[in-house]
Amino acid sequence: MKVIKEAIAGTLESSDVLVKVAPTEKGTREVVLRSEVIKQFGEQIKQVVTDALDKLSVSAGSIVIEDKGALDCVIRARVQAAVLRGCSSEELDWRRLS
């Protein structure tokens, strides 16, 4: 899947995360992470995001994560929602979202 339009999911509130996706000019996949707990959990958050993107086979798109201390399950859900919106995905393989 490729991100073909801009989309967001999530909020700026504490314990949540705002995920913004956009198409990239060069067709690459770029993840940018900003987190209030980046020192403690930066690596783990990045892993969760990468896993979520890989499971949905996202090959292209800019993915900006503005984390406010969200739990892994929240991060995963927000990334999935933003990507599915940004890819205008009509048909869903629900197994990929577990």
Partner: peptide
């Protein structure tokens, strides 16, 4: 947390 909700709603 009001301001953060305001920010989220605006975005």
């Amino acid at each position: 947390s009001l301001s953060l909700r305001l920010g989220s709603e605006t975005v």
